[in-house]
Design a binder for these strands. Structure first.
Lengths: 347, 347
DNA sequence: TTGTATGCGTTATCAC
DNA sequence: GTGATAACGCATACAA
């Protein structure tokens, strides 16, 4: 018995037709006696239905994919962590795609939807939704949820929902806070301007300064990558150019880590000399010393929202596209509050 | 055209049989002219093969599942991060199961293999491989790789490989190091003894002490959970009971974080007064202050090994079960080295 | 080289 | 209620 039992095997053993077997297994009304015989045979054979055959017939896989740039990134981990149990609860399995933020890879995933190996997709395109992304989304007849920004003019009939955050407001919250604690020379360590978050945060920084009546000073801005070592390099450059800076706004937590490294290395007190704010409010923020004040962009909530929208579409059928905007918030920690405010005071 | 094109659609359009279409699409020898017509029709129709139908026919899904306790745990993230690209490279998609370390959930995944929705499985059972696990592994005719310990007496014919680490040696490395830097009263903050790592590390701690000719002192041992707050509670209790402790061996990095919190709160210098060693060498270890010396159990390497074993089995067919043991190593950082040893005062 | 026919394992539609 | 049978979309043995 190297091949597994099928409904045919059961039918033979129980002396009934495969139709009856299928009915029994699916709980359709059947005569008592037939039910017993089928159940017994299935039990003895250790029958388990073949999910592939069922999928082919039912035209659904009970699988959902989540495509992100990098599963190692704490932001995505936070999302997956929320998405997984929701899907499981609803009876779906979860597939993970790591795209490295490569647009071609993302397109591959979107186009792959036509293979019908999943019933829906959550995707977070790092560099934005291009014309080609849109085409692929329209061509895919499976529902898609895009985490991030989406063009205003999506074609009608696209099965797509959108979850986004508002990093503009996020940066604003951070700068307001820094201003409130007396900082006036607020530097900005950003990620690549070619990425959606990078571009948005750059604009947001300018706007926030303006709103606070602070001058925009090119010397206070440094662009690097969204990593720790890159953040360190950027911080070093900025501090060399503008030694008088009294706060550093960082475009994500990893950059902030790099900044903290450099400030410690240079013997500058945080937050005494320089206050530091990160972004994403990842698990790392509560681990550093001092702990890191960070703008939360609601990663967990975005994950939940994305899963919710997709499941709703899968369960309740077509409807107008929806957009969920998750409001940012500021989690204030040690890197922007003076020591006397942090009990225990062990420094 | 609400339904997608199939080989039948193409066959009609190209004026050939579905067999020819299939042949062309699979690159089998075909007349030049036929190839052109089929390709053209496929192209015009935007044909994409249905992966479910193909799976049913080919008896393979090109999918592999990875079941772990918690996708939020940095150890598993490190593994997934290695596994994902290897599978992708080999043409497999990755499914993620989060089991919460629940044995029933784990069994569900193992038994689910009989549904044939994946070609293979990597699983890391948190509380060990029970009799029932073994049964399910044998019953599943898909290859399985177990990360963690596996019973010696697996039944013949089980398609299972094993990747494990050697936490005994790991703990030993840590205690040798602590001893070498002059520590003699080495406390131990462990996780639940009901878990495989918890039990192994408890035994390893005793052994290591013995090897170093240090007495085993119950007051120096505290058992909690593998989390930060639990680690903090445990550290607090241990420090109250044994104020003279000069080092803390922690059963994982999260526990060590909690310990660092408490030590800072109590104004005890790390490593001056108390040295701290974590375990797993997660990303967090390089973020804390002081940075955390930690025993690396080779998470990344274990992930790679697991993927490698599974792929080998899928590609080269049956063979004897294999065991890969990943050797632990010690990454020495600030929590066990005195300040003067760390140049620039920043690590 | 090409077409016909069959099967992969299910579900569902019919007659009976 | 039950059984024969037709899909689902694809790949292939076999005959032409």
């Amino acid at each position: 018995m190297t091949e597994g039992p099928t409904i045919t095997t059961i039918a033979q053993r129980a002396g009934v037709s495969i139709a009856s077997v299928s009915r029994v297994l699916n709980g359709l009304p059947t005569r008592e006696d037939t039910v017993r015989r089928v159940m017994r045979a299935a039990d003895e054979l250790g029958y388990v239905p073949n999910s592939v055959a069922r999928s082919l017939r039912n035209r659904r896989t009970d699988q959902i994919a989540f495509a992100m740039a990098d599963i190692g990134n704490p932001v995505y981990v936070a999302m997956v962590r929320e998405v997984q149990p929701l899907l499981k609860e609803a009876g779906y399995r979860l597939l993970i795609h790591s795209t490295d933020g490569d647009a071609e890879d993302e397109l591959g995933v979107l186009r792959g939807l036509r293979e019908r190996y999943v019933d829906g997709l959550i995707i977070s395109p790092l560099r934005g939704v291009t014309e080609e992304h849109v085409e692929a989304i329209v061509a895919a007849r499976a529902p898609v949820v895009v985490i991030g920004s989406l063009p205003e003019d999506m074609p009608d009939g696209a099965l797509v929902d959108n979850v986004r955050t508002d990093s503009r407001t996020g940066v604003r919250l951070a700068l307001d806070h820094l201003h409130a604690i007396g900082r006036r020379r607020i530097g900005f360590l950003n990620g690549p301007l070619g990425t959606v978050p990078g571009a948005a945060r750059a604009a947001a920084y300018r706007e926030a300064l303006e709103a606070l009546d602070l001058p925009y000073d090119e010397d206070l801005v440094e662009v690097g990558d969204f990593y720790r070592d890159s953040g360190a390099r950027a911080a070093r450059a900025l501090l060399a150019r503008a030694p008088g800076v009294d706060a550093l706004m960082c475009a994500n937590d990893l950059i902030a880590l790099g900044a903290l490294d450099v400030l410690r290395e240079q013997g500058r007190d945080v937050p005494g000399d320089v206050a530091v704010v990160g972004m994403d409010d990842t698990d790392l923020a509560s681990v550093t010393w001092p702990t890191l004040t960070s703008v939360s962009l609601g990663s967990a909530e975005r994950g939940r929202a994305a899963a919710g929208l997709l499941l709703d579409r899968l369960q309740n059928g077509p409807r107008e596209p929806r957009v969920v905007v998750v409001r940012p918030s500021l989690t204030i920690r040690g890197s922007t509050t003076l020591p006397e405010a942090s009990p225990g005071g062990a420094r």
